[in-house]
Design a protein around this nucleic acid. Structure first.
Lengths: 195, 195
DNA sequence: TTTCAACTTGACACCGTGTCAATTGACATG
DNA sequence: CATGTCAATTGACACGGTGTCAAGTTGAAA
């Protein structure tokens, strides 16, 4: 096994991520992660104080190995507000499936664990920045529909692009990634672009 | 106390509902419900086999006392597809805040309890019928935007009106009930009505 | 050869759900 | 009055999952 001399902490994060991905974030216990990392459950606590902390560390690990969060950036280079909106939705639709499993696990703890709640909220707040940037660019171009204030438009885009919505479209309605991306882009144009 | 000779089952349901409403569906335990109903936790199980079953019964109790579900009907009498869409969104925006607390509790069990999962899914499937009726009426009028097939439009409306979205708009974005209703109606027109 | 850190073993606490057996108290019926 | 029934009580326990603790092992570095 190539993974034998990897440092333990990393092996834990890798195991955590693999299990979460395999189960779409549902039903992954500390025991399972420990087993897969080749250590005891108790040893997990030598590296992470709580399950929430481990889950949060797993998101950072994911970002680090996939550079996922960086991929949300390129939309900033787009010229027009419309292009920026499109680019952002495209990037986001690639990104969601990757964080979904770990996001799901974190969301499941929202109600009982303040740390998990905050960690996920922070992520969603960061994603809101991207929505705001797109809407503001649209406004600057004079292309924002007069139906909504910029603030409202941001709320709407942010909600349209929520992970819960992605979950419903893909998992419940059976939409493909392509259909999701294509439809949300068209929806966003229709809702936010004037005329 | 006027509630003393009410039949126990009803007293339990009443307590369950009150506690769920008071806490917005979060952290209500069997013990709490029993205490409020004036019986022991164990006695709860003489009336309901599981927590999920009690929660589900609570939704029926809520429908019964508030006649909430019936209020989703009047949109059927509306003339045009557009009026129907409006009426449905209006009724729904009145309805959501009422079922939200118990819905929240049910949703929290989705991942671990199959019965709760199914019960909530059934509700959402019923609500989808309303969405379908509105979209189909719009299509019959020749007013459905050519951007979407009827099926896609139903998926989209259904997701737009999801409880999770309502939660985000009102709880996270701080929208009032009126703003929610008004904005969703305007959004729906813009997205679904041709021209 | 000692020392230290990482890890193991095994036990235990806490919470919330669900279960069970034995008991109590009220009420109805013969 | 005795008997039975029914709803509820008391007290105990199981289970699953998280988190904790004390004592022991192992391997590598100093």
């Amino acid at each position: 096994m190539s993974s034998e001399n990897i440092d333990t902490r990393t092996r834990i994060l890798k195991s955590s991520l693999e299990l979460l991905e395999a189960s779409q974030g549902r039903g992954v216990r500390m025991t399972d992660i420990a087993k897969r990392a080749g250590i005891t459950r108790q040893a997990l606590y030598l590296h992470f104080a709580t399950r929430a902390e481990l889950l949060i560390a797993t998101t950072h690990y994911l970002d680090q190995i996939k550079g996922s969060d960086a991929r949300l950036e390129p939309s900033r280079t787009a010229q027009s507000g419309i292009a920026r909106l499109d680019a952002y939705i495209e990037a986001w639709s690639e990104y969601i499936p990757e964080i979904y499993p770990i996001g799901k696990a974190l969301m499941a703890m929202k109600d009982t664990d303040a740390a998990a709640d905050k960690a996920w909220d922070d992520r969603m707040q960061a994603m809101r920045e991207g929505c705001a940037a797109a809407i503001l660019a649209l406004e600057r171009d004079g292309n924002l529909s007069p139906d909504h204030s910029a603030e409202d438009a941001i709320d709407i885009l942010w909600t349209m692009l929520s992970v819960r919505n992605w979950e419903q479209f893909t998992l419940e309605c059976g939409w493909s990634r392509e259909k999701y991306g294509k439809t949300l882009k068209s929806l966003a144009r229709r809702v936010f672009v004037a005329g």
